[in-house]
Amino acid sequence: MKVLVSPTPEAAARLAAEHLARAAASAIAERGNFSVALSGGSTPKLMYQALRGLDIDWTHVHVYFSDERSVGPDSLDSNYLSAKTELLDHVGVPAGQVHRIQGERDPVQAAADYAALLPAQLDLVLLGMGDDGHTASLFPGTEGLQAGGRVVANWVPRLETWRLSFTFAEINAARERWLLVTGASKAGVLREVHNGIDGLQGHPVAGVHDAVWYLDTAAAAQLTL
């Protein structure tokens, strides 16, 4: 694990945003565009707000999503809507370069269609981690943990709903993977992941390889760095 610890959630989000701006500039200079997959949750909102004030050539950015709930784009539960209101409405990404997952459709077909429109390789996948160790919509004990391909329709029994999610194969195929994790409620799981306890089934985030972890002090409290 490459771990970067900041004193507060806001500071961790700001550091990730600054690094994303640098990654975007480098990718655009080298390849002409920057492809990034965003995630849901509360901590990414802090990063989205920080990104709004940074100098990024958004006209050369393509935005994707690492997962989505089985809802439409206007639902308050939609990861797309969160990114739209907190970031995309405030920056100049052309509408045709924002690629949402169509969570309102049949999940199996929506997963297949999203896999088909992804680029050959994403530059960056941004992820979070739940208190149960899930990342994207790959939850403990679900079939999606073992899924092949690029995008999976993952049934989550404890939530009684479908989720659409990147597979681990897709996440790990990106040029970079970053995890933004904050809060004391995450500290125990982070310690176990760091120490290799419980593995993929217990803590799905363990399936993300060679990631950069952006943590606040509370989340990192039980790590020995």
Rank of each mutant, 00 (worst) to 15 (best):
L164W: 05
E86G: 06
V63P: 06
M129P: 04
V93Y: 04
P107G: 07
T167K: 11
Y48F: 15
I197S: 15
R191I: 12
A187H: 05
S42E: 13
V63I: 13
A24I: 02
L127R: 08
R52P: 03
I101M: 01
S165N: 10
V212P: 08
D123L: 00
Q201A: 15
G72T: 02
L200S: 12
T135A: 00
S75Y: 06
G144R: 00
A211N: 02
T224W: 12
R14I: 03
T43G: 10
L38Y: 03
G144Y: 02
L190G: 11
A173W: 11
P73I: 02
D113N: 10
D216V: 01
A120N: 14
L15T: 07
L159P: 03
A187W: 07
T85N: 14
S6H: 14
E30K: 09
G199H: 09
L145N: 03
N154I: 09
S39Y: 01
G133D: 07
N172C: 08
E170Y: 11
L20E: 05
G53M: 12
S185G: 13
R69T: 06
V212T: 15
L179W: 10
A12W: 00
V156W: 04
R177M: 12
Y214W: 11
H99P: 01
P140R: 03
H194Y: 14
V3S: 06
H209P: 00
R69H: 03
R191T: 13
I171G: 00
S66P: 09
V3D: 02
L122V: 08
G32Q: 09
L164K: 09
H90I: 11
Q201I: 15
L81A: 09
K84E: 14
A12E: 09
R177Q: 15
G103T: 00
K84W: 13
N33E: 15
G92T: 11
P7T: 12
R14D: 09
A187T: 11
A25W: 10
V205F: 03
V205K: 08
Q201K: 15
S185F: 05
V5C: 08
D123G: 09
A11P: 01
Y48Q: 02
L145V: 08
L51R: 03
N79R: 04
Q146A: 10
T135Q: 04
S78D: 01
R100E: 10
M47C: 13
V156Y: 02
Y114K: 11
A220R: 06
